[in-house]
Computed example of a mutant assay.
Amino acid sequence: MRKSILLSVLFLFAFWSEGVSQEIEKLFDSEVPISMKMSFSIKEIKSKTNDSTYMDSEISVQTSSGSWETFPFEIRTRGNFRLANCYYPPMRIKLKKGEAKGTIFQGNRSLKLVLPCSKTKFADSFLGKEYLAYQLFEQVTPYTFDTRLVKVEFTNLDDKKGGAVVLLGILIEDDDEVAKRFDGEILTKKIPPSIMEDSATVRHDLFQMMIGNTDWSGLYQHNQKVMLVGEKTIIPLAYDFDMTGLVNPPYGQVNSAVGIEKITDRMFRGFCRDPALVQTIRKEFLAKESKIFQTIELNKQYFSEADAKWVNNFIKEFYDILKNDKLFQQKVLESCRKADGTYSF
């Protein structure tokens, strides 16, 4: 009798414990921004860290109950252009081993953190539009990096007189974690675009045209990762959307070799594919038009009213091209890149 009671108690405890673990919020399961607190020296993180060197720090996160929980993180700088040109450096943050279990960071111990570039009044608005680009990409393809907005109460230890400032930020999923979601593998060697999966690649390339992005390269995997799914399916994964016409930041610039004068000049940089396939993907984009604009509407709270108008007009211009056979032929089908990287026109 006692044995059966004991077994029943153990069973109920195990069932309760499983239920508790299932209730733990996962980092990317919600679109509600997370409140965080960070405090470090910008000068120190820029001078003492790099792609392989971290420094110890702490990050406090507000829980769903409103209380604050502090975690031991390691942080470092990353990137190139924004690291050299922005006040707030782009970072990689990594929760120390063993500290993530049972927390919101379980399964996402290593993350990228993007903060606004500058201290100007409208810096958050540019960051909000960059986050929008990730949300728009999710409407186009399942093969994306998960993201979540954060509101960071940041104290720069270099500023002895100033207090904390609240910044909008983006947490971006680690490369290995996105690969794990698809039972795939991130490839580190250069992969010719010609051997990437056709449909996924055309969706990627049309999306980049939609947001006015020329700051990427399929040949050199610039601002693009490639993921192997199964034995031979290779998928492009886009990221880093700040230097786009959609975001249109003050520091925006284009490579003179691309052939446009400013980042708001939209062009198609994809390689030539079967025109019938490209037309099929074109129809996919057209069918998703309402979802695209709904996504803009849902996220316009994160940028200014003027920027919301700009974003809607900019995306509308893309759809004007898709809806016009002559323009689509001219700006996409006849403007694709040949195998050697040169353009057809």
Rank of each mutant, 00 (worst) to 15 (best):
T155V: 10
Y302E: 06
L167T: 10
K338F: 09
M38W: 15
F137M: 12
L171H: 00
L298T: 09
L171C: 04
T147M: 04
R2H: 07
Q139G: 05
D198L: 07
S199Q: 14
K326V: 15
S60F: 09
D205P: 03
V20Y: 15
M210W: 09
K180R: 15
F314R: 13
D242S: 04
K283S: 10
L246D: 11
K112H: 04
W216H: 08
A14C: 13
F328G: 15
V152D: 05
G79C: 07
K309W: 11
K190A: 10
P236D: 06
A164N: 11
W68Y: 11
I104L: 13
N85P: 06
P116F: 10
I42N: 05
K316P: 07
S52Y: 11
G252I: 08
K43Y: 05
I195K: 15
S67I: 02
Y319A: 08
L333K: 09
R282H: 03
S64N: 08
A308M: 06
I211H: 00
K121S: 07
L136T: 00
E138V: 00
K190G: 03
L322H: 12
D159L: 13
T188P: 04
I292S: 12
L298N: 13
E23L: 15
N85V: 07
R203A: 03
D242G: 01
T77E: 02
K97D: 10
G162T: 06
K161D: 11
D51I: 10
R282S: 11
D340N: 11
D274H: 05
V166L: 14
S21I: 09
E31W: 13
S304C: 08
M36P: 03
K161C: 07
K338S: 06
K180P: 01
T233G: 03
C336D: 14
S110P: 03
T141C: 05
K48V: 06
F122P: 00
